[in-house]
Simulated assay, not measured.
Amino acid sequence: MPILRGEVNFIAKRENILNLALPFPDEKSQALTLYLEQNGEDLERCMVESVEQLYRKTVPIAIRKYIDATLRKQQPEPGKAPLEDESRPEGPTGL
């Protein structure tokens, strides 16, 4: 299943959930960055795509669906300001 660019942008824009430090020679890193930039790519975006592919390959679909649903619930709806206290009941009993 290919990863859509929109998904990658969404993932990349969220707060840092995972920071990786990998042993990789500076010379190789500089060359990789240079050639990615020449092709209009970004190392961070490519790494996010790779981790996302590994996640989809490794984590069972039922778990991925649960996590996706949980993450969607945590996002405020577009155009809707989050309420200060969403746990407070509405209506006459919630005075």
Rank of each mutant, 00 (worst) to 15 (best):
K65W: 01
K73C: 05
E37R: 13
G6K: 00
F10A: 14
G79C: 03
P2V: 08
L22H: 01
K28F: 04
V59G: 04
T70R: 08
E84I: 02
A69Q: 10
E49M: 11
Q53I: 03
V48C: 01
P78E: 10
D85W: 03
P23R: 00
L95W: 09
A21S: 10
R45K: 14
K80I: 12
F10T: 07
P2W: 07
I17W: 00
E90D: 07
S50T: 08
L20N: 11
R88E: 04
R14A: 00
A81H: 14
M1N: 12
L18E: 01
E41H: 05
I3L: 12
P76Y: 02
K13I: 09
A62M: 11
L4N: 14
G79H: 01
S50Q: 14
E77L: 14
E84G: 04
A62F: 07
I17Y: 02
L36S: 00
E90T: 10
P92H: 05
E27D: 01
Y55Q: 06
M47T: 15
G79F: 02
A62K: 10
L4M: 13
F24G: 04
N19S: 13
S29Q: 10
Q38D: 15
R88L: 09
A31P: 05
L43P: 01
Y35D: 12
F24I: 11
I67G: 12
D26S: 15
R88W: 04
A69M: 09
E52A: 13
L4A: 11
R5A: 09
D85V: 05
P76I: 05
L32P: 03
R5Q: 10
Q38H: 13
S29R: 05
